[in-house]
């Protein structure tokens, strides 16, 4: 079981690898679209990547309300507790 800090660290790696996002910008309150310059096409890639990592598919409805980095961390955290 990973805690939220570990998930955040892993998310930094994923965002850098997939989208060349500077890890220094990946803070819990950072907004995915506005601060990290992701778009809806990237969001699909991110969901797929998170599925690879966790082995579980995030509920698309749950992911629709995701806005910030900490939202993503929470979704992943909840997934891993299932």
């Amino acid at each position: 079981m990973q805690n939220q800090d570990e998930i955040l660290e892993q998310l930094k790696q994923v965002l850098e690898e997939l989208f060349e996002v500077d890890p220094a910008k990946v803070k819990p309150e950072a907004h995915l679209y506005e601060d990290l310059d992701l778009d809806s096409i990237d969001a699909v890639d991110l969901v797929i990547k998170l599925k690879e990592i966790t082995g579980k598919m995030a509920n698309p409805e749950e992911f629709k309300s995701v806005r910030t980095v900490s939202d993503v961390v929470n979704v992943v955290h909840n997934l891993m507790q299932k």
């Binding site: 997939l18 096409i41 890639d45």
Partner: peptide, 8 residues
């Protein structure tokens, strides 16, 4: 390369 990188 992944499309996300190419498109950027």
């Amino acid at each position: 390369e992944p499309p996300a990188i190419v498109s950027r």
